[in-house]
Amino acid sequence: MESVGYHILGGIVTIIVAFTVGLTYMGLSRKITARIQNRKGPPFYQNFIDALKLASKESAIHHGFMQHSGPAFLMVSAILSVLVIPVLNNGNWFPNLNFHGDLIFLIYIMVFGSLGMALGSGQTGNPNSAIGVTRGLSQMVGFEIPWVMALVAIMVKYQTTSLVDLLEVQQTGGWLMFSSPFAFIAGVLAMLGMFRYSPFDIVSAPTELASGPVSENGGKYLFTMMSSGSIFAFAKLVLYVDLFLGGASNLIELLAKTFAIYMIPMLYGVVSPRYRTEQAIQYFWGWPLFFGFLALVHALVF
């Protein structure tokens, strides 16, 4: 059961499931956005067609080594995070590599991809990329602080840095969403920025920045980014479900919970216009930071 082959196979299956679910969610979000705008919209599998087309395109662009490895950094970050986060309760079905202190590891590795992509798009020399990178990193400074505060509050309250321990706590004591509500609110508000949907989509705004950091990447690079983006989206959603919604005991429960969480940034984005960078940072350092402080106080006092 605990052999190396079992773990490798499980990892591959986890990645495939994450890719499929992430792409389907993105396709569904396109469909829902279209319905809200009173359009018919593309079919929900449109993103799979796009991915297939991008993978079959030629990519004869060369700007240097970092440009080629930028999307790879994104992929590494997405896969490492999806392998560490427990997908189902009690290690059901999906074996993963989680260990004590994986929450701290996740705080680092979830930023790693964006930093690698920033280096990669820096080398393309496209001015739109450079502007996109500066905006993205400043926005990251905005939402990382309430996010880390929410995580630290949970770590302090339950005296653990392990996701599995937190899952066990929730199986006996109810969801963390209710037992530490302020951390949940801060986490969800930070998630709005983490998904980079509108109103926080200044980083890759197609009309303003010509899609920002990815503007020099086409074809297979874009395919790598798209697939890593979908894997990473799944990882983030599962992390939220594990942290606040008590995990899931089977796949259907997992899909229901992750989709419910996914609707928050998506629906908030559909009805919101785009923020400028300083407005976004002002937003994150307002109420989300306040709830982060409340969560810390709540964790220390109660």
Binding site: A34, K40, K53, P206, T207, S211, S215, N217, L222
Partner: peptide, 22 residues
């Protein structure tokens, strides 16, 4: 591209840069 004729239902979408376009 917008609601009235909605080219996105046919898979037609705007691309931002020549690198990404077909």
């Amino acid at each position: 591209m917008t609601s009235r004729y909605d080219a996105e239902r046919l898979g037609v979408r705007g691309a931002a840069t020549p690198r990404q376009a077909d």
